[in-house]
Design a binder for these strands. Structure first.
Lengths: 120, 120
DNA sequence: ACAATAACCGAAAAAAGACTCGGTATCCGT
DNA sequence: ACGGATACCGAGTCTTTTTTCGGTTATTGT
């Protein structure tokens, strides 16, 4: 098991929340499951640039913290399906707002980043 | 200038949003400024375990993306004050929700993490 | 029996992010 | 003139996170 060297501050709501869903793809995974994309391989395919290994690892963490549930069925091809728990569903309003905010301001972000490149 | 090696996907609202406020202390900084703690040294003191250097760097990034504004006054002791722009203020509802969600579930998170430790 | 697909895991390497440390500069009170 | 506080920056180190790679197991279609 990996043990952190720097202690985390979990007295702050923000830090707790980010501990749960702050991973690189976690919110995208939750979004995918909500949309009905519930199997690891499919989630992976639905998120450009993600690697299958990270999806697996982040799913495991979401499972650990009770954000998702796993229900495996033994059918072909080996089938694992993930679903949102009530805890996971409670994140959806936040997720939606974050996603919306990001889409509203994506042009601004891209512009700024391009300025940086042209400077250099 | 530092250039990333792995390309970021900014077509996803979530990723854009996290690019802006996903840093370790960025939301805490925004929260502090909203509360009237507007100077770097004070922000630093208000956030346990944070280092001044990181606060400075993250303030610079928030400035770069237009989330905060800087207004320096030449008084004693050298005074820089940061304030939220309209973009920054538009994050407050999200911030509040995230903070609330985190506080509501902090016990659960702490329990899980302790289970991990006792196992090992 | 064999290729193909899915799920998953461990370990090392790479990348990103945060931290440390030392420095500059300015201003104030003494 | 000097100590203390503030703001800020560069560069190297360290930690954390993500990625890569190479496995195992199970099941189906040929």
């Amino acid at each position: 098991m990996y043990t952190r060297k720097i202690q985390e501050d979990l007295d702050c709501g923000i830090r707790v929340a980010l501990k749960i869903f702050g991973g690189k793809w976690k919110l995208c995974i939750i979004d995918a499951i909500d949309k009905g994309i519930v199997r690891p391989a499919e989630i992976h395919k639905s998120i450009p640039n993600s690697t299958l290994r990270v999806i697996e690892m982040q799913l495991a963490e979401l499972l650990f913290f009770g954000v998702v549930d796993k229900c495996s069925e033994d059918v072909y091809p080996k089938k694992s399906e993930y679903e949102l728990t009530s805890l996971g569903k409670s994140l959806l309003p936040i997720l939606t707002r974050i996603n919306l905010w990001g889409m509203e301001h994506s042009e601004l972000v891209k512009e700024r980043l391009q300025e940086l490149e042209t400077e250099a």
